[in-house]
Design a protein around this nucleic acid. Structure first.
Length: 732
DNA sequence: TACCTCCACGTTTTT
DNA sequence: CGTGGAGGTA
């Protein structure tokens, strides 16, 4: 008898779900039922008695995906999902480290640093090393540390090959020491520490290998090297890894995601045949054909072709605007008309390549009184008032937390200036003790002595007053006692912040309520509410992605649209230099990733897809002239229809078969004449042809006479600087 | 310490 | 154009 949840699966889906106990790689195209296969596989394994809920581990990248998975499993099977190891890589590693903190060499209350905290630590260290932040930008240091951790390298394993890397290794070493002293781990550290724990501790490794007979991985194309090695370690020789992914949707290579893991998996886990899910249940055929044609231009692919049994649907709509403003007003106009046709705003998304593009759109939407929601800004737990409140909590819980100390020692201001802090830091440095210990040492002089002592008393009073209270009350007390409340009451724009602080109390209350319903593993001491809540704040910093059904137009980057679908999608800013982005288009690898990004964008739409671009766009304070994205040339013309073309006084012929003009008032972009001689035949915005690079548009100009240079945005070659004297440009 | 002005900078970012 | 950080001044 086959379980009811297998009904309705197509052939490859069913094959994947009912595969025997062996490792497998499922190549799952966009909209092909990837999550369904993954969750049904779990349900099937459990129901057929091949594994108990306790004996499997399922890992995702986002909390949202993990939650979704749990929800679906419990809708298929009448089991309690409590205690199941379903979560994000970071969440599961955190869980493991909490349980075995002693073996992992961590204090029981270890803190998780988010990227902000991490950057603050790096800055502090670089400053104490007197490194010139021009030569050694803290961001680079952060990148260096994370990069090495993701390769599994500790400071001692990193070989310096020049002055820069030598200093960076020192920063890394100091950072590592600092983290150990404070009992802090960053995101990469969660993974690395967990990896090291498993590889150094034979007993523990064997324990988990015996336990997790089935390991299931979502979005496998996004795993980095360390995550892959972690999976290998956990799987050993005998356990089955069931990986689902889509190499064509790998858009996080810039962050270390390594699609080669898909090949490695096949090799290392002896997977003979990859199962492909190619039937798409989301989009009409024109959209899929466009996506297929586009992604076919990538060379490095495992290869697959999406198809649908549904109709062709309508052609993709292409709109060329004279300016970014006009592009935005076109979007507004179309959205209005869609809404009056009865389409809910939440079913419409406007996507863009970079966040900077949202402003013009927001402005137009605001003026048109269309409700919209922008995704990707600051998230709840990243807001300064929240981070401040959490820092008080952290310091109260763990006095050794230097990051927390620095953040709040003088916030709200209490007369502790740079000089006082210097003293504290000096003591801390010279004696190798934490800032808190230094502050408590009675060796400060002058004004510092009294003000620092006041701060120490404040924290200790909070600690005493909140001992034993339930977490929400602790937080409430902290907000009051720290002076944060008073501070934001008097601040001009403090009202929102006060609201957020109140929300923090609520968040803690509901976190605890949920936690009591979903306890962790059997017989293992759980961390207290506070440290669990702090971990939660770091690992799940709040909603970043769109909430399905919210009745507002959805604005977001293409990256944050991954995994979502909408009835109608606008892809805006379809211009060379923007999409594909000029920084990526330089190398093949970068361009392929841009193309995958475009593939993701296209496959978000169920029914209607708009692609818009503007001849001129205000970017970084100056008007830039762009040509249409090369991606238009990679989609068969018959799949696209140009709608309401605006006049194009400065642009070259477009790529579209039917390019009827439908009389708009010509918009003459404001042209900055740059430094070109007024007598020069070359003007900014002018279309030109170059013997080698082909056609393009003059974007910037500098110098005069023999020195005159122009920057040309070539349709196929991207941005190039050319000396007018030698370039031999011809007007187009 | 707090505010102001100047300057540099400006992809994407699940955790 | 806009922001955020740094540095100077009241």
């Amino acid at each position: 008898m086959s379980p009811h949840f297998l009904a309705g699966l197509n052939e490859p889906q069913l094959e994947a779900v009912t595969l025997p106990s062996q490792s497998a790689l499922i190549l799952a195209g966009a909209g092909s039922g990837k999550t369904r296969v993954l969750t049904t596989r779990i349900a099937w394994l459990i129901q057929t008695g091949q594994v108990s809920p306790h004996g499997l581990l399922a890992v995702t990248f986002t909390n949202k995906a993990a939650k979704e998975m749990l929800t679906r499993i419990s809708s298929m099977l009448p089991i309690n999902t409590r205690g199941m190891w379903v979560g994000t890589f970071h969440g599961l590693c955190n869980r493991m480290l909490r349980m075995h903190h002693a073996e992992a060499g961590l204090p029981s209350l270890f803190q998780i640093l988010d990227t902000q905290d991490q950057l603050a630590v790096v800055k502090r260290i670089m400053k104490s090393m007197n490194l010139d932040d021009e030569l050694y930008p803290p961001r680079k240091g952060l990148w260096f540390i994370a990069g090495n951790k993701e390769e599994g390298r500790r400071p001692k394993d990193v070989e310096a090959y020049d002055e820069f890397s030598e200093q960076m290794v020192k920063v890394y070493a100091e950072y590592d020491q600092q983290c150990r002293r404070e009992g802090a781990v960053d995101f990469a550290e969660l993974l690395l520490r967990s990896f090291e724990l498993l590889s150094n501790n034979d007993l523990l490794r064997e324990h988990y290998r015996n336990r997790f007979k089935h390991i299931l991985v979502d979005e496998f194309q996004d795993t980095n090297k360390l995550q892959y090695r972690w999976l290998q370690l956990l799987a050993g020789q005998q356990n089955a890894v069931f990986a689902v992914g889509d190499d064509d949707q790998s858009i996080y290579a810039f962050r270390g995601a390594n699609t080669a893991n898909m090949q490695h998996l096949q090799r290392d886990f002896h997977i003979e045949r990859v199962i492909k899910l190619e039937q798409n249940y989301r989009s009409h055929a024109h959209i899929l054909d466009a996506a297929n044609a586009l992604i076919n231009h990538n060379r490095k692919r495992l290869g697959k072709n999406l198809w649908t049994s549904e109709g062709k649907g309508e052609p993709l709509r292409v709109y060329e605007a004279a300016t970014d403003l006009e592009e935005a007003s076109y979007v507004v106009q179309e959205v209005k008309s869609l809404r009056s046709d009865g389409l809910s705003l939440g079913e419409i998304a406007v996507l863009y390549r970079s966040n900077a593009q949202s402003r013009v759109l927001e402005h137009a939407l605001f003026n048109a009184s269309l409700p919209y929601k922008v995704y990707g800004g600051l998230r709840f737990f990243e807001r300064q008032e929240i981070k401040h409140a959490l820092a008080y909590l952290r310091l109260v819980a763990n006095a050794d937390d230097d990051g927390a100390f620095m953040r709040i020692v003088n916030f709200p201001t209490r007369g502790i200036g740079a000089r006082s802090l210097d003293q504290v830091q000096e003591i801390s440095r010279s004696r190798g003790i934490t800032l808190w210990a230094a502050a408590c040492a009675n060796t400060l002089s002058g004004k510092a002595s009294a003000s620092i002592a006041g701060f120490v008393r404040l924290i200790e009073n909070i600690r005493i007053a909140t001992a034993g209270l339930p977490l929400p009350e602790v937080i409430d007390h902290v907000i009051e006692g720290s002076g944060l409340k008073q501070h934001y009451k008097t601040e001009k724009e403090g009202a929102d912040r006060l609201e957020n602080l109140a929300e923090l109390v609520t968040a803690a209350a509901s976190f605890i309520a949920e936690r009591e319903l979903q306890p962790l593993d059997e017989g293992v001491a759980e961390p207290d509410d506070l440290s669990a809540f702090l971990a939660h704040a770091a690992l799940e910093s709040g909603e970043h992605q769109a909430i399905a059904g919210a009745d507002a137009l959805q604005l977001m980057t293409v990256h944050s649209a991954k995994g979502l679908e909408f009835h109608t999608v606008f892809i805006s800013g379809m211009e060379e230099g923007l999409f594909p982005h000029e920084n990526s288009a330089k190398e093949d690898e970068g361009l392929e990733e841009e193309r995958r990004l475009m593939y993701v964008a296209l496959t978000r739409a169920r029914r209607r897809l708009y692609m818009t671009y503007a001849q001129s766009r205000m970017l970084h304070g100056q008007t830039r002239f762009n040509v249409a994205s090369r991606f238009f040339q990679e989609i068969p013309a018959q799949l696209m229809r140009k709608t309401k073309a605006a006049p194009r006084p400065l642009l070259q012929p477009s790529y579209f078969a039917n390019r009827g003009y439908s009389g708009n008032v010509p918009v003459q972009p404001k042209v900055d004449m740059g430094n070109i001689d007024s007598g020069s035949p070359w003007k900014i915005g002018q279309s030109v042809v170059h013997a080698k690079f082909g056609s393009g548009v003059i974007v910037t100009a500098e110098g005069r006479g023999a020195d005159a240079r122009v920057q040309v945005n070539f349709r196929n070659g991207g941005l190039k600087w050319l000396m007018l004297e030698y370039a031999n440009l011809a007007p187009a």
